[in-house]
Deep mutational scan, measured.
Amino acid sequence: TYTWNTKEEAKQAFKELLKEKRVPSNASWEQAMKMIINDPRYSALAKLSEKKQAFNAYKVQTE
């Protein structure tokens, strides 16, 4: 089980997950979700809006 003390740690864990699963920077949210949804870190960020925000930040960083 994973635990995160801060929102920032949770966001980092979520981005690490995207990186580890090699989600391409041109992937849509739907494509990315299919690649990461079974990992416990997918739940790091509770709100869908937070997940999408972190995903978009990840995409910008990896382009």
Rank of each mutant, 00 (worst) to 15 (best):
A57D: 14
E16R: 06
I36A: 02
E50P: 01
S25H: 12
I37S: 11
P40V: 11
T62N: 11
I37K: 12
T3G: 08
T3V: 14
N38K: 10
N38M: 11
D39G: 00
E9P: 02
E50M: 05
L48N: 07
K52G: 02
M35C: 07
E63F: 06
E8P: 04
E16F: 06
L48P: 06
P40R: 08
A27P: 01
L45T: 01
A46L: 08
A46Y: 09
Y2I: 15
S28A: 06
A57C: 14
Q53N: 09
P24E: 04
Q61C: 14
L18G: 00
K47M: 11
T3K: 10
Q53E: 14
N56D: 12
A32L: 02
V60A: 13
T1N: 15
E9F: 03
Q61V: 10
A32W: 02
M33R: 14
E9S: 05
L18P: 00
K51E: 02
F14E: 00
W4L: 02
A27E: 03
Y42F: 10
S25W: 13
T3F: 12
K11L: 15
A57L: 12
K51S: 03
W4T: 06
L48F: 05
A32S: 03
Y58A: 02
Q31S: 09
T6Q: 04
N5P: 10
Y42S: 02
I36H: 00
Y2T: 12
N56M: 12
W29F: 10
A54R: 02
K47H: 11
M33F: 05
Q12W: 08
T3H: 13
R22Y: 07
Q31K: 07
S28E: 05
P24M: 04
M35T: 05
L45R: 00
A13W: 03
E30T: 12
K11R: 13
E20S: 08
S28K: 07
K19Y: 14
L17M: 12
L45A: 02
T3P: 15
I37Y: 12
R22V: 07
K15T: 15
K47A: 12
W29G: 00
S28M: 07
E63G: 11
K19E: 14
Q53H: 10
L48C: 10
K52A: 03
Y42T: 02
I37R: 11
K34P: 11
N26D: 15
R22H: 11
K59T: 07
E30N: 11
K52D: 03
A54K: 01
A54S: 06
V60R: 15
E50W: 07
F55Q: 02
L48Y: 06
S28R: 07
R41V: 03
K52Y: 07
K21Y: 09
N5I: 12
N5Q: 13
Q12C: 13
A46P: 15
E9G: 05
E50C: 06
Q53Y: 09
A32N: 01
T1I: 15
L17Y: 01
L18N: 00
F55W: 08
K51L: 06
P24S: 06
F55R: 02
E9I: 04
K59I: 13
Y58L: 03
K15M: 15
K19N: 10
E50T: 04
A13P: 01
W29P: 01
L45F: 05
E9L: 05
K34L: 12
E30W: 09
L17N: 00
W4A: 06
F14A: 00
K11G: 09
S43G: 12
K51A: 04
R41T: 03
Y2H: 15
E50N: 04
E63L: 11
I36G: 01
N56E: 13
I36R: 00
L45C: 03
N26K: 06
A13Y: 05
D39I: 01
A57M: 10
T1V: 12
A13V: 10
E20R: 03
P24Y: 03
Y58M: 03
Q61T: 11
Q12T: 12
K47Q: 11
K34T: 11
A44T: 04
M35K: 05
A46H: 10
K7T: 09
T1G: 15
P40Y: 14
V60M: 13
A54H: 04
P24I: 01
A46T: 14
Q61M: 14
E8F: 08
M33W: 05
W4D: 10
K47V: 10
W4N: 06
T1Y: 13
E50Q: 07
N56T: 10
P40G: 06
R41S: 02
S49H: 12
W4F: 06
T3Y: 13
L45I: 10
K21G: 03
V23S: 01
A44Y: 04
P24F: 03
K21F: 10
A54Q: 06
T3M: 08
K19C: 14
F55V: 03
V60I: 14
M35E: 05
L17R: 00
Y58H: 05
K11W: 15
E30C: 11
L17Q: 00
N26Y: 10
K21N: 07
E20L: 04
K52F: 06
K21S: 09
S43C: 14
S49I: 06
A46C: 10
A10H: 03
W29V: 02
S25Q: 13
K19D: 10
K51I: 05
E9N: 05
L18T: 01
V23C: 04
Y2E: 15
S25C: 13
S28W: 03
A54M: 08
A10V: 03
V60Y: 10
I37C: 13
A27Y: 11
Q53D: 12
E8R: 08
N38H: 12
I36C: 06
E9A: 05
M33L: 09
P40F: 13
E8Y: 07
L45Y: 03
E9W: 03
S28N: 10
K7I: 11
Q12L: 12
E63C: 15
K52M: 11
E50F: 03
Y2C: 15
W4C: 12
F55M: 03
E8T: 08
K19A: 14
E63I: 14
N5L: 13
N38V: 07
T62M: 14
T1L: 09
T1H: 15
Q31N: 09
A46Q: 14
A32I: 04
F55A: 02
Y2K: 15
E16A: 14
L45W: 01
V60W: 11
D39H: 02
K7F: 08
P40C: 09
K34A: 11
A32D: 00
I36E: 00
W29D: 01
K15F: 15
E63H: 12
K34M: 13
Q53S: 11
T6H: 04
L17I: 03
E30V: 09
F55N: 01
T62V: 13
A54F: 05
I36D: 00
A57Y: 09
K34I: 11
N38S: 14
Y2M: 15
S43Q: 14
S43A: 13
E30I: 11
E9M: 04
